[in-house]
């Protein structure tokens, strides 16, 4: 564990907690993409199957359980909670997220380190996580006026990605065999998807204005 990975994990945790808090306390999921949340639930469910097969640390297991629990809770709130579900922007959140799942699965079947069930699913989760934010970014662009919490959620998620890149550079320099092309390229693609959002986020922050994305 290094400081960059810890900072990345903490911003990731904060992003999820901000979103859960928003949904739980103000009973609204306006501006939140259910498609993205479902994709994250799939990402965690396929990546963390190894809690049954390998143990790394209490920290690792605990965080996995938190991410699994929170992502499925958010999906549950948005789909089934009687107040929250009515605030969901169903008409705007039209991204065909299943069209992301299939190509990622095919890619994982073609490009992986080992052809085993767990390894292919783990690789699939990396590819899917890279593109899972797309429905959320499209929804933000469509609704344009973004409340602070939704903006902070995406900002914190982007921060998590940035710290993970620093973590990989650090590990590459300090651990002799740390070379993981699949993880790095998927992670880099994911981080680049946030670049446009970050540009407008900082513009609005600099001008002390409410975040607005161009149509």
């Amino acid at each position: 564990m290094n400081i960059f990975r810890l900072a990345g994990d903490m911003t990731h945790l904060a992003s999820v907690l901000v979103l859960l808090l928003k949904i739980h306390t103000i009973k609204s999921c306006a501006g939140v993409s259910l498609k993205t949340q479902e994709l994250y639930a799939i990402v965690f469910a396929t990546r963390y199957l190894d809690i049954f097969t390998s143990f790394y640390s209490i920290y690792n297991t605990l965080m996995k359980l938190i991410f699994l629990g929170s992502s499925f809770s958010i999906v549950w709130y948005m789909r089934y909670h009687k107040t929250v579900r009515r605030t969901y922007d169903r008409e705007q959140d039209t991204f065909r997220h299943w069209f992301l799942v299939l190509p990622c699965l095919l890619l994982a079947l073609l490009i992986h380190e080992k052809f085993t069930f767990l390894e292919v699913l783990w690789t699939f989760s990396l590819y899917l996580e890279a593109v899972a934010i797309l429905p959320q970014l499209v929804l933000l662009q469509r609704t344009r006026n973004i409340d602070n919490l939704t903006g902070q959620y995406v900002f914190l998620l982007g921060g998590y990605r940035g710290f993970y890149i620093l973590n990989w550079i650090y590990r590459y320099l300090t651990e002799p065999h740390f070379v993981h092309w699949i993880t790095w390229i998927a992670g880099l693609v994911q981080t680049l998807l946030y670049a446009d959002f970050f540009y407008y986020y900082f513009q609005s922050w600099k001008n002390n204005k409410k975040l607005q994305l161009p149509a």
């Binding site: 990975r5 190894d50 390998s54 965080m63 991410f67 993970y164 740390f178 993981h180």
Partner: peptide
Amino acid sequence: VARDDVKDEL
């Protein structure tokens, strides 16, 4: 050669 060390990440 890649080892499984990246799996300790989240």
